[in-house]
Design a protein around this nucleic acid. Structure first.
Length: 712
RNA sequence: GCGGGUGUGGUGAAAUUGGUAGACACGCUAGACUUAGGAUCUAGUGUCGUGAGACAUGGGGGUUCGAGUCCCUCCACCCGCACCA
């Protein structure tokens, strides 16, 4: 799927949407637009040439060598007779290395001289051509011009292989490290001499294009995406094949649905599971395509279908999509930043270009909820008895997913020995075995092991070896290798929400998630606090029904104090909800319920207002109590309460009184008192007089409605 | 390495515009009611100090009558990306 064709528009569209800065950065970074030039170099004693991509054509006179990706066919063409063996050996070496190894050993400098030379088109200088795995075949042209005085990797490469370095930036280059500046004045650079590099880029590009040896070029890091999967779960392609020709199904045969299958095994010759269902694959028109679409196919446009879900003619009518327009608010995680959220933006643009919808960005506003983090426990090594070391190590390396646990050992009581395992070893699901202080102690470890392993070994040794400083008050040792990280099945640090919903109900769970902290922040998951929210909902219920007395709610008229309580809540909850501050809104509900309980207010007039506010936070209990109050119809159709400021009007304020900025006492003063009146009251205050010690204050500061401060 | 974010009690956090730091909860300590409590209610709970008070928002500096909030600087942790020429 040619998402690269939309790269520029995907960048441009980011200017028009309300996404977080980091989300925009991640997408920009992923698209990875760079402006530069392609320059073609002739090769000495050869009719072939090399085209490199560079963003710094201004450094063309600092080129000391060229580097090709080892995979390029050109390498075999140009390698000299003397270097053939070395080049072939190097290519073999590169092929033997996995991507994993390459990534893990970025700092390892490897490479090989090809024996060939390129010619600098401006000064005719011979430039040795090397190959190295640090140049990627898939980006740009797979070839670079190396400028060691200005590029860190080029510099390290040159130093490693003793390639002489040309300095084109004078004192800006110290010979010890590259300087990637664009602000230096060029030297040793022929027609670019004396120019600031930033400006020289344009001059060099103009000259390169005028000479016909290259052209300006924009590159993207983003790649096109494969659009088929050898899997069962995914939309099937409405395509049949006959004699190698693909034909689309006619509309009367749509939609094409997945056939039901008994099992999902892979098909023959690496095909997907659908290939096993011959009665589905073989049609009179030919063989069906057996690959299915990737996950991002459906997720790229489902929100459009929601606008017109029963439409049998089109995926969405223009009338419906014009009415609903793009999504006003999307709440989702950053993990979709460069997948789903980029693909759906592209699809929307495609559908817009085809005229099917009238907007080209799917989501107007995007709020990223923070990740829920979990505690993971690690050990950096283990103690084994000799007879099982080999077995355990083998299991670690070859069956990592089946790894039982590094302490699965038979301890013979004598032959203990510490064996380092490469990398930390995760104690799977150890977070379920913590003491009340969240520590993984020796006794918790014992219950953990009974569950996981067959043999128990010398615990004291493990715990003491780990860190002898870690002791609980009772002297019990505990492990300290805790990492707070993303909660994830693959990290074995998850808690299943279903269990909590089972125990407390969906309202409690929902509200607790909101209560944890700001939506956009990542938060540690700790189920201890859930009790507080659950208690709140029970307390709310008791405003309506008493355990012994039954119904306690009544139809009495609310008094001023009660109206003040509920209107303060209306104001706060509405404001907090508007700014996505759900945690403080939940606390406002708690304050409201606490105050109503203290005031012994069980009045329907007040309570039903609160229930309507509560709908988005605890929908089930709100709906249920709404009906208990004798209301017909759903609470969802009730009118949202309107805040009335007159219930909150105050005539006096309890002012904080500070001396030199430090709060010393408070004073109740009428809100309409003048500054002069307040000053007299302040100076007469007992606490203030004590601090003044008979002296006159240097300065009196009064901020109406806020505070009083005396400088002495 | 580059980009983004976060640091406040024992814990999750609040403080929306520079104006009473710790709201609201969890946990903990007492007590009440109870055959019982994993129910409910009451009181207390940042640290030090008998007290008046002193010290407290990652560390250090600054601006201000006043700083969690603004400025400079350093540190730690988390999340992305990572040989992108």
């Amino acid at each position: 799927m040619r998402i690269t064709s939309y790269a520029d528009r995907l960048l441009e569209g980011l200017e028009r949407v309300d996404f977080s800065g980091s989300m925009k950065d991640m997408q920009r970074n992923w698209i990875g637009r760079s402006e530069g030039a392609e320059i073609t170099f002739n090769i000495q004693h050869s009719t072939s040439n090399i085209t490199v991509y560079t963003t710094r054509p201004d450094t063309i006179f600092g080129v000391d060598f060229m580097v090709l990706a080892p995979e390029l066919e050109l390498v075999n063409e140009i390698k000299s007779a003397e270097q053939t063996k070395a080049v072939d050996d190097y290519i073999t070496y590169v092929k033997s290395r996995s991507d994993r190894e390459r990534m893990a050993e970025v700092k390892l400098i490897t490479g090989c001289f090809t024996g060939a030379y390129a010619i600098n088109p401006f000064n005719g200088k011979q430039i040795p051509i090397w190959i190295s795995e640090y140049v990627l075949a898939g980006y740009g042209t797979g070839a670079i011009m190396a400028v060691p005085c200005g590029d860190e990797r080029d510099f390290k490469f040159a130093t490693h292989f003793n390639i002489p370095i040309t300095n084109i930036i004078g004192e800006h280059f110290n010979g010890k490290e590259a300087n990637p500046t664009k602000d230096a004045i060029l030297e040793n650079s022929d027609f670019l001499n004396g120019l600031v590099m930033r400006d020289a880029i344009k001059v060099a590009n103009d000259k390169i294009e005028a000479m016909g040896i290259g052209k300006r070029k924009v590159n993207f890091r983003m790649r096109d995406a494969g659009f088929s999967r050898q899997r069962y779960w995914g939309e099937p392609f409405p395509i049949v094949w006959q004699d190698g020709v693909a034909t689309a199904l006619t509309e009367k045969d749509l939609p094409l649905e997945l056939p039901h299958v008994a099992k999902y095994g892979p098909g023959p010759e690496g095909e997907g599971p659908l290939a096993n269902i011959t009665e589905w694959v073989n049609t009179p028109e030919g063989k069906r395509e057996t690959s299915t679409m990737p996950g991002y196919a459906g997720s790229s446009w489902y929100f459009l279908r929601y606008m017109d879900p029963t439409n049998k003619e089109e995926f969405v009518s223009r009338k419906a999509s014009d009415y609903w327009n793009s999504v006003d608010l999307y709440i989702g995680g950053t993990e979709h930043a460069v997948g789903h959220l980029l693909y759906s933006r592209m699809w929307t643009k495609v559908l817009y270009d085809l005229g099917y919808i009238g907007f080209d960005e799917p989501f107007k506003r995007l709020v990223n909820q923070g990740m829920i983090t979990g505690k993971s426990f690690f050990v950096d090594g283990a103690i084994y008895s000799d007879d099982v070391i080999d077995k355990v190590i083998f299991k670690l390396q070859s069956h990592h997913s089946e790894l039982p646990f590094p302490f699965v050992i038979k301890y013979d009581g004598i032959n203990l020995k510490r064996k380092e395992i490469r990398g930390d070893v995760r104690l799977r699901n150890a977070h379920r075995y913590l003491d009340s202080n969240g520590r993984f102690t020796k006794s918790m470890f014992e219950s953990y092991c009974e569950f996981e392993i067959n043999y128990i070994i010398d615990f004291d040794k493990i715990f003491v070896d780990w860190d002898s400083q870690n002791k609980t008050e009772s002297g019990e040792p505990y492990l300290n290798g805790i990492v707070i990280e993303k909660m994830s099945k693959s990290k074995y640090n998850v808690d299943n929400p279903d269990d909590m919903v089972e125990q407390y109900g969906a309202d409690t769970f929902r509200m607790y998630e909101m209560f944890l902290g700001p939506v956009e922040q990542s938060k540690p998951w700790d189920t201890k606090g859930i009790e507080g929210v659950h208690r709140f909902l029970r307390k709310l219920w008791r405003l309506f029904f008493d355990e012994l007395k039954g119904k306690v709610w009544n139809d009495e008229k609310a008094n001023a104090a009660e109206l003040k309580i509920i209107h303060r809540a209306i104001k706060k909850i509405e404001e907090d909800t508007e700014r996505f501050s759900f945690n403080t809104a939940v606390s406002a509900f708690m304050v409201c319920v606490n105050e109503l309980a203290d005031a012994k207010c069980n009045k329907k007039e007040v309570l039903e207002q609160m229930l309507i506010l509560l709908v988005p936070y605890a929908p089930h209990i709100a709906e249920e109590l709404w009906h208990e109050l004798g209301n017909a119809g759903s609470i969802l159709d009730a009118t949202y309460p309107t805040f009335n400021p007159q219930y909150l009007v105050e005539t006096t304020k309890e002012y904080p009184v500070s001396i030199n900025g430090k709060m010393r006492t408070t004073m109740n003063v009428a809100l309409d008192a003048s500054a002069e009146e307040v000053e007299l009251l302040t100076l007469a205050n007992e606490v203030v007089q004590k601090w003044l010690e008979g002296k006159a204050p240097k300065k009196f500061i009064f901020v109406k409605g806020k505070m009083i401060n005396l400088v002495i």
